[in-house]
Design a protein around this nucleic acid. Structure first.
Length: 287
DNA sequence: ACCTCGACCTGCAAGC
DNA sequence: TGCTTGCAGGTCGAGG
Protein backbone atom coordinates (compact mmCIF):
# COMPACT_ATOMS: atom_id res chain seq x y z
CA UNK A 1 0.00 0.00 0.00
CA UNK A 2 2.44 2.62 0.97
CA UNK A 3 4.16 4.62 -1.69
CA UNK A 4 5.67 8.04 -1.17
CA UNK A 5 2.40 9.93 -0.54
CA UNK A 6 1.20 7.38 2.00
CA UNK A 7 4.53 7.38 3.81
CA UNK A 8 4.53 11.17 3.87
CA UNK A 9 1.00 11.10 5.27
CA UNK A 10 2.09 8.66 7.97
CA UNK A 11 5.02 10.91 8.80
CA UNK A 12 2.78 13.92 9.20
CA UNK A 13 0.42 11.92 11.37
CA UNK A 14 3.14 10.55 13.62
CA UNK A 15 5.27 13.66 13.97
CA UNK A 16 3.03 15.56 16.42
CA UNK A 17 2.89 12.52 18.71
CA UNK A 18 6.52 11.50 18.49
CA UNK A 19 8.63 14.62 18.11
CA UNK A 20 9.93 15.70 21.47
CA UNK A 21 8.69 12.54 23.16
CA UNK A 22 10.97 10.17 25.01
CA UNK A 23 10.81 6.46 24.27
CA UNK A 24 10.07 5.04 27.70
CA UNK A 25 9.54 1.45 26.74
CA UNK A 26 9.78 -0.60 23.55
CA UNK A 27 7.74 -3.73 23.09
CA UNK A 28 8.72 -6.04 20.26
CA UNK A 29 6.13 -8.76 19.85
CA UNK A 30 7.45 -10.22 16.63
CA UNK A 31 11.06 -9.77 15.55
CA UNK A 32 10.52 -11.45 12.19
CA UNK A 33 10.01 -8.55 9.85
CA UNK A 34 11.72 -8.33 6.46
CA UNK A 35 14.90 -8.82 8.47
CA UNK A 36 14.89 -9.84 12.09
CA UNK A 37 14.75 -6.87 14.42
CA UNK A 38 18.18 -6.61 16.07
CA UNK A 39 18.63 -8.11 19.52
CA UNK A 40 19.75 -4.77 20.95
CA UNK A 41 16.86 -2.84 19.37
CA UNK A 42 14.96 -2.16 22.60
CA UNK A 43 18.10 -1.28 24.52
CA UNK A 44 19.29 1.22 21.95
CA UNK A 45 15.94 3.00 21.83
CA UNK A 46 14.88 3.04 25.44
CA UNK A 47 15.41 6.42 27.08
CA UNK A 48 16.13 8.34 23.90
CA UNK A 49 14.07 11.25 22.66
CA UNK A 50 12.75 11.56 19.14
CA UNK A 51 14.10 14.90 17.96
CA UNK A 52 12.58 14.77 14.50
CA UNK A 53 10.70 12.54 12.11
CA UNK A 54 11.75 12.68 8.47
CA UNK A 55 11.27 10.75 5.28
CA UNK A 56 13.51 9.59 2.46
CA UNK A 57 11.68 7.90 -0.42
CA UNK A 58 9.44 5.32 1.29
CA UNK A 59 11.54 5.25 4.48
CA UNK A 60 10.64 6.99 7.71
CA UNK A 61 13.66 8.30 9.60
CA UNK A 62 13.33 9.03 13.31
CA UNK A 63 16.18 11.17 14.62
CA UNK A 64 17.12 10.26 18.15
CA UNK A 65 18.86 12.17 20.92
CA UNK A 66 21.25 9.22 21.23
CA UNK A 67 22.83 10.27 17.94
CA UNK A 68 21.25 7.39 16.08
CA UNK A 69 18.50 7.17 13.49
CA UNK A 70 15.67 4.67 13.43
CA UNK A 71 14.94 3.67 9.84
CA UNK A 72 11.48 2.23 9.21
CA UNK A 73 9.81 0.84 6.11
CA UNK A 74 6.16 -0.13 5.81
CA UNK A 75 6.62 -2.83 3.19
CA UNK A 76 3.36 -3.74 1.49
CA UNK A 77 0.97 -3.86 4.40
CA UNK A 78 2.52 -1.85 7.24
CA UNK A 79 0.69 0.87 9.16
CA UNK A 80 1.01 2.81 12.40
CA UNK A 81 -1.59 3.53 15.01
CA UNK A 82 -1.53 6.10 17.77
CA UNK A 83 -3.33 5.32 21.00
CA UNK A 84 -3.71 7.33 24.15
CA UNK A 85 -2.78 5.17 27.10
CA UNK A 86 -5.50 5.70 29.65
CA UNK A 87 -4.13 5.00 33.09
CA UNK A 88 -6.12 2.40 34.92
CA UNK A 89 -8.41 1.57 32.02
CA UNK A 90 -9.34 -1.99 31.32
CA UNK A 91 -7.71 -3.22 28.22
CA UNK A 92 -10.16 -4.91 25.96
CA UNK A 93 -9.49 -8.31 24.44
CA UNK A 94 -7.06 -8.25 21.58
CA UNK A 95 -9.04 -7.77 18.42
CA UNK A 96 -8.25 -9.27 15.07
CA UNK A 97 -6.66 -6.00 14.00
CA UNK A 98 -4.14 -6.21 16.80
CA UNK A 99 -3.00 -9.63 15.73
CA UNK A 100 -0.18 -8.21 13.67
CA UNK A 101 0.98 -5.53 16.08
CA UNK A 102 4.71 -6.22 16.02
CA UNK A 103 6.32 -3.20 17.65
CA UNK A 104 4.88 -0.84 20.27
CA UNK A 105 6.58 2.40 21.28
CA UNK A 106 5.47 3.67 24.70
CA UNK A 107 6.07 7.43 24.78
CA UNK A 108 6.66 9.78 27.67
CA UNK A 109 3.58 11.79 26.69
CA UNK A 110 1.31 8.87 27.50
CA UNK A 111 0.74 7.86 23.89
CA UNK A 112 1.65 4.61 22.24
CA UNK A 113 2.68 4.22 18.63
CA UNK A 114 2.07 0.73 17.27
CA UNK A 115 3.47 -0.77 14.11
CA UNK A 116 1.11 -3.30 12.51
CA UNK A 117 2.12 -5.33 9.47
CA UNK A 118 0.27 -8.52 8.46
CA UNK A 119 2.68 -9.54 5.72
CA UNK A 120 5.83 -8.54 7.59
CA UNK A 121 7.58 -7.08 4.57
CA UNK A 122 8.25 -3.97 6.63
CA UNK A 123 11.53 -3.37 8.42
CA UNK A 124 13.20 -1.46 11.24
CA UNK A 125 16.86 -0.74 11.67
CA UNK A 126 18.94 1.59 13.83
CA UNK A 127 22.09 3.23 12.50
CA UNK A 128 24.38 5.98 13.84
CA UNK A 129 23.52 9.29 12.23
CA UNK A 130 27.15 9.75 11.24
CA UNK A 131 26.91 6.65 9.09
CA UNK A 132 23.61 7.47 7.45
CA UNK A 133 25.16 8.36 4.10
CA UNK A 134 26.86 4.97 3.94
CA UNK A 135 23.64 3.14 4.75
CA UNK A 136 23.05 0.53 2.02
CA UNK A 137 19.28 0.90 2.25
CA UNK A 138 19.50 4.59 1.37
CA UNK A 139 22.71 4.88 -0.54
CA UNK A 140 21.51 3.82 -3.98
CA UNK A 141 18.25 5.77 -3.92
CA UNK A 142 17.63 8.24 -6.72
CA UNK A 143 16.36 11.79 -6.17
CA UNK A 144 13.18 12.70 -4.35
CA UNK A 145 10.56 13.22 -7.05
CA UNK A 146 9.23 16.35 -5.32
CA UNK A 147 12.67 17.88 -4.89
CA UNK A 148 14.38 20.34 -7.20
CA UNK A 149 17.02 17.89 -8.38
CA UNK A 150 14.33 15.84 -10.05
CA UNK A 151 13.68 17.40 -13.43
CA UNK A 152 13.35 16.45 -17.08
CA UNK A 153 17.08 16.73 -17.77
CA UNK A 154 17.93 14.40 -14.91
CA UNK A 155 15.24 11.86 -15.75
CA UNK A 156 16.19 11.81 -19.42
CA UNK A 157 19.83 11.23 -18.52
CA UNK A 158 18.88 8.36 -16.21
CA UNK A 159 16.71 6.73 -18.87
CA UNK A 160 18.90 7.39 -21.87
CA UNK A 161 20.79 4.10 -21.88
CA UNK A 162 17.96 1.93 -20.55
CA UNK A 163 16.59 -0.96 -22.56
CA UNK A 164 13.61 -1.45 -20.27
CA UNK A 165 10.13 0.00 -20.40
CA UNK A 166 9.15 3.34 -18.93
CA UNK A 167 7.12 1.46 -16.34
CA UNK A 168 10.15 -0.50 -15.17
CA UNK A 169 12.40 2.58 -15.20
CA UNK A 170 10.05 4.63 -13.05
CA UNK A 171 9.59 1.73 -10.64
CA UNK A 172 13.36 1.55 -10.18
CA UNK A 173 14.13 3.36 -6.93
CA UNK A 174 17.61 4.25 -8.22
CA UNK A 175 16.11 6.33 -11.02
CA UNK A 176 13.61 8.18 -8.86
CA UNK A 177 12.83 7.24 -5.27
CA UNK A 178 9.33 6.81 -3.93
CA UNK A 179 7.08 5.78 -6.79
CA UNK A 180 5.41 2.38 -6.63
CA UNK A 181 3.06 0.41 -8.80
CA UNK A 182 0.08 2.70 -8.38
CA UNK A 183 1.69 6.08 -8.91
CA UNK A 184 3.79 4.90 -11.82
CA UNK A 185 0.57 3.87 -13.58
CA UNK A 186 -1.15 7.08 -12.64
CA UNK A 187 1.76 9.32 -13.69
CA UNK A 188 2.10 7.62 -17.07
CA UNK A 189 -1.61 8.06 -17.62
CA UNK A 190 -1.45 11.76 -16.83
CA UNK A 191 1.51 12.15 -19.17
CA UNK A 192 -0.31 10.30 -21.99
CA UNK A 193 2.63 7.89 -22.18
CA UNK A 194 2.43 4.16 -22.66
CA UNK A 195 3.96 2.06 -19.88
CA UNK A 196 5.40 -0.24 -22.52
CA UNK A 197 7.32 2.49 -24.31
CA UNK A 198 11.09 2.14 -24.07
CA UNK A 199 12.45 4.36 -21.30
CA UNK A 200 15.16 5.73 -23.58
CA UNK A 201 12.54 7.39 -25.80
CA UNK A 202 12.16 10.31 -23.39
CA UNK A 203 15.67 11.40 -24.35
CA UNK A 204 17.33 12.26 -27.66
CA UNK A 205 20.61 10.67 -28.73
CA UNK A 206 22.59 13.10 -26.65
CA UNK A 207 20.53 12.32 -23.56
CA UNK A 208 18.70 15.63 -23.68
CA UNK A 209 15.10 15.55 -22.50
CA UNK A 210 12.35 15.70 -25.10
CA UNK A 211 8.75 16.80 -24.76
CA UNK A 212 7.79 13.46 -23.20
CA UNK A 213 10.33 13.86 -20.43
CA UNK A 214 8.92 17.25 -19.47
CA UNK A 215 5.36 15.95 -19.52
CA UNK A 216 6.35 12.96 -17.42
CA UNK A 217 8.12 14.96 -14.73
CA UNK A 218 5.16 17.33 -14.48
CA UNK A 219 2.78 14.37 -14.23
CA UNK A 220 4.82 12.67 -11.50
CA UNK A 221 4.99 15.78 -9.37
CA UNK A 222 1.31 16.52 -9.88
CA UNK A 223 0.07 13.05 -9.02
CA UNK A 224 2.20 12.88 -5.88
CA UNK A 225 1.17 16.32 -4.71
CA UNK A 226 -2.49 15.51 -5.28
CA UNK A 227 -2.18 12.28 -3.33
CA UNK A 228 -0.40 13.96 -0.42
CA UNK A 229 -3.15 16.55 -0.33
CA UNK A 230 -5.76 13.77 -0.26
CA UNK A 231 -3.76 12.07 2.49
CA UNK A 232 -3.85 15.23 4.55
CA UNK A 233 -7.62 15.29 4.57
CA UNK A 234 -7.87 11.56 5.23
CA UNK A 235 -5.52 12.12 8.16
CA UNK A 236 -7.95 14.44 9.83
CA UNK A 237 -10.78 11.94 9.37
CA UNK A 238 -8.84 8.91 10.46
CA UNK A 239 -7.28 10.40 13.53
CA UNK A 240 -10.60 10.76 15.29
CA UNK A 241 -11.74 7.34 14.21
CA UNK A 242 -9.09 4.90 15.39
CA UNK A 243 -5.79 6.70 14.98
CA UNK A 244 -4.60 4.36 12.28
CA UNK A 245 -2.25 5.80 9.72
CA UNK A 246 -1.07 4.55 6.40
CA UNK A 247 -4.25 3.83 4.59
CA UNK A 248 -6.48 6.10 2.64
CA UNK A 249 -8.76 5.94 -0.28
CA UNK A 250 -8.42 8.02 -3.35
CA UNK A 251 -9.70 8.00 -6.86
CA UNK A 252 -7.21 6.48 -9.20
CA UNK A 253 -7.83 7.12 -12.86
CA UNK A 254 -6.48 3.83 -14.17
CA UNK A 255 -5.11 1.74 -11.32
CA UNK A 256 -7.34 -1.27 -10.58
CA UNK A 257 -9.84 -0.13 -13.22
CA UNK A 258 -9.47 -2.87 -15.79
CA UNK A 259 -12.37 -2.88 -18.22
CA UNK A 260 -13.69 0.52 -17.18
CA UNK A 261 -13.99 3.40 -19.64
CA UNK A 262 -11.07 5.79 -19.81
CA UNK A 263 -11.97 9.05 -18.02
CA UNK A 264 -10.74 11.18 -20.93
CA UNK A 265 -10.89 9.16 -24.15
CA UNK A 266 -12.98 6.53 -25.89
CA UNK A 267 -10.62 3.80 -24.73
CA UNK A 268 -11.05 1.07 -22.16
CA UNK A 269 -8.57 0.55 -19.32
CA UNK A 270 -6.43 -2.47 -19.92
CA UNK A 271 -4.42 -4.59 -17.50
CA UNK A 272 -1.13 -6.11 -18.55
CA UNK A 273 1.72 -7.67 -16.59
CA UNK A 274 5.18 -6.11 -16.69
CA UNK A 275 8.06 -7.57 -14.73
CA UNK A 276 5.60 -9.58 -12.74
CA UNK A 277 3.36 -6.68 -11.66
CA UNK A 278 0.04 -5.45 -12.95
CA UNK A 279 0.05 -2.36 -15.12
CA UNK A 280 -3.15 -0.46 -15.87
CA UNK A 281 -3.36 1.97 -18.76
CA UNK A 282 -5.47 3.23 -21.63
CA UNK A 283 -4.13 2.01 -24.97
CA UNK A 284 -6.24 4.62 -26.77
CA UNK A 285 -4.65 7.73 -25.27
CA UNK A 286 -1.35 6.61 -23.83
CA UNK A 287 1.25 6.45 -26.54
C1' DA B 1 26.68 -3.94 -15.67
C1' DC B 2 22.08 -4.87 -16.81
C1' DC B 3 17.67 -7.13 -16.38
C1' DT B 4 14.04 -10.51 -14.90
C1' DC B 5 12.32 -13.42 -11.70
C1' DG B 6 11.61 -15.91 -7.42
C1' DA B 7 11.26 -15.42 -2.59
C1' DC B 8 9.68 -13.47 1.55
C1' DC B 9 4.42 -13.39 4.29
C1' DT B 10 -0.76 -13.09 5.24
C1' DG B 11 -5.43 -12.11 3.86
C1' DC B 12 -9.03 -11.68 0.84
C1' DA B 13 -12.07 -12.40 -3.16
C1' DA B 14 -13.50 -15.17 -6.90
C1' DG B 15 -14.43 -19.57 -8.83
C1' DC B 16 -15.78 -24.26 -8.47
C1' DT C 1 -20.06 -24.14 3.07
C1' DG C 2 -15.37 -25.17 1.99
C1' DC C 3 -11.61 -25.77 -0.88
C1' DT C 4 -8.27 -23.88 -4.30
C1' DT C 5 -6.26 -20.33 -6.83
C1' DG C 6 -4.64 -15.93 -7.79
C1' DC C 7 -3.70 -11.50 -6.47
C1' DA C 8 -2.05 -7.49 -3.41
C1' DG C 9 0.58 -0.66 -2.86
C1' DG C 10 7.95 -3.58 -1.88
C1' DT C 11 12.58 -4.91 -2.39
C1' DC C 12 16.50 -7.96 -2.16
C1' DG C 13 19.51 -11.15 -4.15
C1' DA C 14 20.22 -15.11 -7.34
C1' DG C 15 20.89 -16.24 -11.91
C1' DG C 16 20.69 -15.37 -17.00
Amino acid sequence: MPELPEVETVRRGLAPAMEGARLERIEVRHRGLRWPIAEDFEKRLTGTTVTGLGRRAKYLLADLSSGEVLIMHLGMSGSFRIDKEKPGAFHHARSKDEKHDHVVFHLSNGKTVTFNDPRRFGSMKIVPRAKLDEEPLLKALGPEPLGNEFDAAMLARACQAKKTSLKAALSDQRVVAGLGNIYVCEALYRAHLSPTRRASTIADRKGEPNERAFALVDAIKAVLNDAIKAGGSSLRDHRQADGSLGYFQHNFRVYDREGEPCPRSKGTIKRIVQSGRSTFYCPACQK
